[in-house]
């Protein structure tokens, strides 16, 4: 049953050792526009669980053994199953280093309370070695690609997952066919904002590339190639549509 009003939206998020990164900001932001946040901790060795539990809207689960490093889709699948227990109208897949532009706070209600589309796609901006500039060369170009971050939950569908070790997608396969809407609200990804993390991430993806493809893909190689200054652009947050609140008592 597709609802045109009063839909709930539940965020789902896998986490591991995030307490000293962006998790607090991410959960503070999410708390402003979602109804609940289902957090699945993948065996953190720091205070991630404690931090997540300090948020009123968070529902926190813990894995008994780490899943991400061996099979990302298994982790995503478990998270999905835990999330649908909350009977959500919509599900947002947000990672612990991602924050939507503030516009979402005023507009999420309008985006989900409709019966025209079932998936919302957003552009992702990778902040590079800073929290002020994003990378835009080659495969990092944020303007040319939209990815799904919100889907309507339809209880009648037989959901299943692609078997992929990495980049298997955040939603089950049937969601790929959902009627889409491409939003201009942007997603800020801070996963590359700390230059000190680049090498360890490069090693992780290099190992996966070699195992899965037998070679290191150009996008993975580009992690260790410093972008030219012209390949970095200063982030300018879009203005919130403050006027949408006018007339609401």
């Amino acid at each position: 049953m597709i609802e045109e009003s009063n839909n709930t939206i539940v965020a789902m998020m896998p986490v591991r050792n995030e307490s000293m990164r962006y998790l607090k900001r991410v959960l503070e932001h999410l708390s402003q526009w979602v109804d609940k946040i289902v957090v699945l901790d993948d065996c953190s060795e720091d205070d991630t669980v404690k931090l997540a539990r300090s948020f009123e809207k968070a529902v926190v689960y813990e894995n008994e053994r780490p899943l991400f490093a061996e099979d990302e889709s298994a982790l995503r699948s478990r998270l999905w199953n835990l999330t649908i227990r909350e009977n959500p109208g919509w599900i947002a897949a947000i990672d612990a280093d991602e924050i939507m532009e503030d516009r979402i706070i005023d507009e999420v209600r309008f985006l989900i309370d409709q019966d025209y589309y079932d998936a919302i796609y957003f552009r992702v901006f990778d902040f590079w070695a800073s929290q002020t500039h994003y990378r835009k060369d080659g495969g990092w170009d944020p303007w040319t690609k939209f990815c799904p971050f919100m889907v309507r939950y339809k209880p009648g569908i037989n959901y299943f997952w692609p078997r992929r070790e990495i980049h298997g997608g955040r939603f089950p396969s049937p969601c790929e066919g959902f009627a889409p809407y491409y939003s201009d609200i942007r997603l800020k990804h801070y996963g590359w904002a700390n230059e000190k993390e680049h090498y360890s991430k490069f090693l992780f993806y290099r190992q996966k590339d070699l195992k899965l493809f037998g070679n290191i893909r150009p996008h993975t190689q580009s992690i260790m190639i410093s972008p030219k200054s012209t390949d970095l652009e200063e982030w300018k947050e879009s203005r919130r549509l403050y006027f949408l609140k006018e007339g609401i008592n």
């Binding site: 516009r103 309008f110 985006l111 409709q114 025209y116 589309y117 809407y181 201009d184 300018k236 947050e237 879009s238 203005r239 549509l241 006027f243 949408l244 006018e246 007339g247």
Partner: peptide, 25 residues
């Protein structure tokens, strides 16, 4: 970028069902 450099100019888009809400302002 152009809109962000001028305080009186907004640039965005909206799904069609949202346009009546925009127009009323």
């Amino acid at each position: 970028k152009w809109a962000s450099e001028n305080g009186g100019i907004f640039y965005y888009w909206q799904p069609p069902h949202m346009m009546p809400e925009i127009f009323r302002h």
